[in-house]
Design a protein around this nucleic acid. Structure first.
Length: 262
DNA sequence: ATGCCCTATGATATAGGA
């Protein structure tokens, strides 16, 4: 079974690329982030035509997450338990579902903006809610393969950014953000390192300053897998080819192949 | 070398991204 996570930076702007990518790589499950559209505006017909069931949570201009599956889409959960709000709004940043006996969470963790910004505190609170939600699920179903996949907006180590010196006083690399990741590890999730097809294992390159061509990337799209999920992984890789050319998302898909049917 | 930003919106600037 092939499961993929991809921050598409607008499903509307990316639709032709997403459809072509689905046809080429045939994932069974695709977790999307940054839809930037409402549920009503999601291109349902085009995706369903390729054989996918779809669950979305999008409210418009920003954020938005979805799960696409060819192998069943059961027990859909919209949002986290006690998910914190930002400026009075419950943002569409997490959606979970069970696909062919595998529990998948598609997450778009808040950016944080600046370490002294309210959004940064919100980011840490959001991580705590994510952990509590998934911890409860894993305790209820310890044998069920489960993974949180998506845009975590944290680079786990200094090796996961092109130049740590450029990140002084920046989010994504602070001790508190990295502690949020190690806290997830403490409840039994493994940061599964993908295989880089070329160069460093980055998943994001900024649009600005020709960052992709210069290799100025970050690994922030992550696979946090419980033991049953991690044991089933046969391959995991970053499709940096998809970052090339005009009309690419600033994030590359991360592909996870698992043993077992289908 | 896949290259000097991209996206959506009560738009003709602005907010957000990371």
């Amino acid at each position: 079974m092939r499961i993929v996570t991809w921050n598409v930076n607008s499903i509307g702007a990316r639709l032709e690329r997403v459809l072509a990518w689905l046809e080429l790589h045939q994932p069974d499950v695709l977790a999307l982030q940054e839809l930037k559209c409402t549920d009503a505006a999601f291109p349902l017909m085009e995706i369903q035509a390729l054989g996918y069931e779809v669950a979305t949570w999008g409210t418009g201009r920003w954020n938005g997450v979805a799960l696409l599956s060819k192998v069943g889409l059961a027990d859909i959960t919209i949002g986290l338990t006690d998910q914190p709000e930002y400026e009075g709004a419950l943002e569409p940043r997490a959606i979970g579902a069970t696909c062919n006996g595998v529990r998948v969470w598609s997450v778009y963790v808040p950016n944080g903006r600046e370490p002294d910004h309210d959004h940064y505190a919100y980011k840490l609170e959001w991580f705590a809610a994510l952990q509590a939600t998934v911890d409860a699920e894993m305790k209820a179903s310890p044998a069920l393969p489960l993974a949180i996949i998506g845009d975590f907006n944290v680079a786990p180590t200094d090796e996961d950014v092109w130049d740590i010196a450029k990140f002084e006083n920046s989010t994504h690399v602070t001790p508190a953000e990295r502690t949020a990741l190690t806290n997830l590890q403490s409840i039994g999730l493994v940061d599964h390192m993908p295989r880089a097809l070329k160069g460093a294992p980055y998943t994001f390159w900024d649009y600005r300053q020709a960052a992709f061509g210069r290799g100025w990337g970050m690994r922030i799209d992550l696979v946090y897998a419980n033991a049953p999920f991690d044991a089933a992984i046969t391959d995991c890789w970053i499709d940096r080819e998809e970052r090339k050319g005009k009309g690419a998302s600033d994030h590359a898909p991360v592909v996870i192949d698992l043993t077992g049917a289908p």
